[in-house]
Design a protein around this nucleic acid. Structure first.
Lengths: 72, 72
DNA sequence: TAAAAAAGAGCCATAAAATGCACTTTGAAG
DNA sequence: CTTCAAAGTGCATTTTATGGCTCTTTTTTA
């Protein structure tokens, strides 16, 4: 997932849970400003920040092997 | 995946590919110091840094739904 | 076990992330 | 159209990640 996809996934998940940016900020312990920046695509959050947010939304950050051109 | 698991996954992948921290640094464009810190558990890399590293190792960062106590 | 390579750590300067506050824009409900 | 809540933006400050150098420790290998 590229940057934009990660953002989109988080934003959608937040909205699905009917949580506002403000709510997310309070509950996750991440500053509101930071969340705003991130969701509006202007941020480059640290892993810690990302994890706090994902955690609260019931999402998990994982690393998986990329499919490099699976031959056919 | 928690912090330590992410680190472990990256480190293992790097070693599997027989790339040194130095090689990874050069190839990924991330500073050697940053990689050393990260792999030794002392870092809190930005998403961008993490992606550069993962990319080069053929790994992809993804967000997936956490399994919150799947009832049996 | 000695030499060489790789990994870890300290110091430091610079760039950038995190965050609060106040203000603007957008969007949805009436 | 008006209102109100949520989202986005500018600015300033503090904290911290990045990354170069150098040195130490650990690991590999000959």
């Amino acid at each position: 997932m590229h940057f934009e996809e990660l953002i989109k996934a988080i934003k959608e998940r937040r909205e699905m849970l009917k949580v506002t940016q403000e709510g997310l900020a309070e509950l996750s312990g991440v500053g509101l400003r930071t969340i705003k920046q991130f969701e509006s695509g202007k941020g480059n959050p640290t892993l810690q920040t990302l994890q706090k947010i994902a955690d609260l939304l019931g999402l998990e950050l994982t690393l998986k092997l990329k499919n490099i051109a699976p031959d056919k």
